[in-house]
């Protein structure tokens, strides 16, 4: 059975949603405390949303120095699938595992709302089960979600097909409407929206399943 590790930093708050999404989709999942120095036996790792280390200094700035991050960097370099959701995305950019940075939202307001995303690339481990151009309704919940990067990085993103998801109506001032990016290889993905909160039509949308089911299937085929 596919096994997913969900990392908990002090201040994470979406770890149960992420765990529940994984087990709902038939995977085995457990938590990894941030001070763990080695991770073994996992097919994929999720860095969940929240406010790791209080978001002090900058979101993700202190989490990147948590002991588990060294092991996650090794796991990613070996081709392991790593998914950062919201705060997890911020942690991955601070750790240098994904390019760019997340800045305060344009308008300086905390945004908590459904958004429509457009699948921009199906090359990443998160979007392999989706169709390019497909629209997905998935909520956002963040203050620092405006994706930003310099021109050279942006050109690389486009050239290497690393933009994974875009907002249909840019809510936060992200460059080029970017909602999620991957590394060059496509095995490390970060996105600000919360697919684990879009698992049931009873709660507004189950479009998150398109992404997370694809994520799990990609792991099975990689194993």
């Amino acid at each position: 059975m596919t096994k997913i590790g969900v990392v908990i930093f002090p201040g994470s708050n979406c770890e149960y949603d992420a765990l529940s999404a994984m087990t709902t989709l038939g995977a085995e999942a457990d938590f990894i405390w941030h001070s763990t120095e080695t991770i073994e036996g996992y097919d994929g790792i999720i860095l969940p949303g929240g406010f790791a280390h209080g978001d002090y200094l900058r979101p993700g700035a202190l989490a990147r120095f948590s002991p588990v991050m060294g092991a996650i960097a090794d796991f990613a370099k070996a081709g392991g699938a790593v998914l950062g959701i919201c705060n997890g995305f911020q942690v991955l950019t601070e750790a240098g595992l994904l390019p760019g940075a997340l800045q305060k939202n344009r308008g300086l307001t905390f945004l908590c709302q459904p958004t429509t995303l457009i699948v921009a690339s199906t090359r990443s481990v998160l979007t392999r089960g989706a169709v390019k151009g497909q629209e997905l309704s998935i909520p956002i919940n963040h203050f620092s979600g405006a994706y930003t990067c310099d021109d050279a990085t942006y050109e690389q993103l486009i050239e290497n097909d690393q933009v994974v998801l875009r907002y249909k109506d840019n809510p936060n001032g992200s460059r080029d409407d970017i909602a999620g990016v991957s590394n060059v290889e496509g095995n490390v993905v970060g996105l600000m929206p919360h697919p684990e909160r879009a698992m049931s039509t009873l709660l507004g949308s189950d479009d998150g399943r398109v992404l997370l089911e694809g994520f799990l299937r990609a792991l099975v085929s990689a194993a």
Binding site: Q103, K104, R106, L108, T148, D150, G173
Partner: peptide, 10 residues
Amino acid sequence: EGIADPEGAT
């Protein structure tokens, strides 16, 4: 420079 600063602008 060149990075948007919504706080400064406000």
